[in-house]
Design a protein around this nucleic acid. Structure first.
Lengths: 253, 253
DNA sequence: CGTACTATTGAGTCCGTTCAAACGGGGTGG
DNA sequence: CCACCCCGTTTGAACGGACTCAATAGTACG
């Protein structure tokens, strides 16, 4: 596994840092809570691109915090088709829901070379026992995933291919901004057109055509692993995108 | 509101009972925990068909437990299209995620005449403070919703219309069985073909054609508010349906 | 320097749509 | 009591967005 990683140096604590960035957009996290979080998160380990991080159905006793790279939740169909139901960015837990569910309904796979930190469920249980506010923040984090699922459901059900692709590009722009990994111009997106197709319920051939449309309309460009946003407002309008479902405001929980 | 309800008698405590059925499929609930749950759930109130129970974006301080009828989470698009992202059956919380998120990203609407019980967020916070195991069970309940969202995402992305419809009919059969509202023959489904279309990302016209297909293939019939399952195995095979994502096994959380 | 994966483009097909019309049942008001 | 209307359902015909099949480049890697 991980014969040759793009970045051979293990990022030391950036995983927790990005998680904290994500949580602090939504609520205050005290110094004590930060300390507790840091204490339960194991050192990052390298994951090779395309490997299965967590297999569907296996009993689990830990959850994965993504430190670097991108993970996807994938469902494979009998006929070889595949649907990705969420793309994870650094600072996300890829399978925090397994803390209550104890196994996954879908695989978690590495979309490129990644670093992840494991967090034992026993430690999470202790958090819910002794740090109820922090526990609610972790609960919140799984509810954000669910909100993203709902947004994708709406996209798949009611948006045509260009709007669907534009919506995904907008979502990633905002989510990566929260953890400091996007600027106004765009962001690194280490996916193939096949991956995008598997997120969007389309074929790779059609994703290619739709990418060309967005490019020719001066909205966005995706080339060699980088998304360049040329006209965010236009992209947003095309996708009927709103940040509401990402809950970027701070309220006491 | 609620000028004339199909059942004028308020169901007294069946809401909690169905919630307990649902939770006890997944984990043990102690007598004390049951008592705590009963104590925080308000008496049922009637909700008229088609009314908006919770509006997107409004600050919330309580969540709705569905006692009778069916609720849907709906997203309306600019052009008048609508996508339903989840259908709720009795025993479900329709918006328990608002406990951590404090507002909704989508409306909750009554698909027919309903009874719901409100649960104050203050009481839920007390549960997470003093009954951590019960708190984890409520967290579990929102994670089940997320698993259902993912299954719908897969349906919308990768199944054709007949398989998609069959999958929804299978899912409701199982979820209603858990709360004692379905038998092997089928179940009451108080939705219109328009509602089904809004769940499935299809048009009502096409839902009608696909329903005819399922009927002519001897798989299932939907008429006058009732689904009759003629061949569950066939339906299941067509939909590539598995109960895995509904987490029907009991494990300690 | 072959091999495999990714991206790109064209041509033809099909599933689900749009547009349109008709039917049926239940409630309402003249 | 009947006429009317509304809503949900049903069916037909034509359209179109996304797919399939196919072929070609480009690129990374062993």
């Amino acid at each position: 596994m991980a014969a040759r990683m793009s970045d051979p140096l293990a990022p030391q604590s950036v995983g927790v840092d990005k998680l904290l960035l994500k949580l602090r957009v939504r609520d205050d996290v005290s110094a004590l809570e930060e300390e507790v979080l840091r204490s339960i998160i194991e050192p990052p380990v390298a994951i090779a691109s395309r490997s299965v991080v967590v297999k569907e159905g296996i009993p689990l006793e830990r959850s994965a915090l993504l430190v670097q790279g991108m993970l996807g939740r994938c469902k494979d169909m009998r006929d070889g088709q595949r649907q990705i139901t969420e793309v994870h960015v650094p600072g996300d837990f890829a399978d925090l829901h397994s803390f209550t569910l104890k196994r996954l309904d879908q695989d978690v796979v590495a979309l490129n070379d990644c670093w992840i930190s494991w967090v034992p469920h026993a430690a999470l249980r202790a958090v819910t026992d002794t740090q109820p506010h922090l526990g609610r923040l972790l609960w919140l984090s799984t509810n954000l995933d669910a909100a993203i699922h709902r947004a994708w459901t709406v996209s798949l059900g009611r948006r045509d291919a260009p709007a669907r692709l534009a919506h995904l590009l907008c979502e990633l722009q905002v989510r990566l901004s929260v953890v400091g990994m996007a600027d106004e111009d765009g962001y690194a997106l280490p996916l193939t057109q096949v991956d995008l197709a598997e997120c969007l319920g389309l074929t790779a051939v059609h994703v290619n055509r739709v990418l060309r449309q967005l490019r020719e309309q001066g909205l966005a460009t995706f080339r060699s692993g980088r998304v360049t946003i040329e006209d965010f407002k236009g992209l947003r309008r095309l996708a009927e995108f709103s940040t509401d479902y990402l809950f970027l405001d701070k309220r006491p929980r």
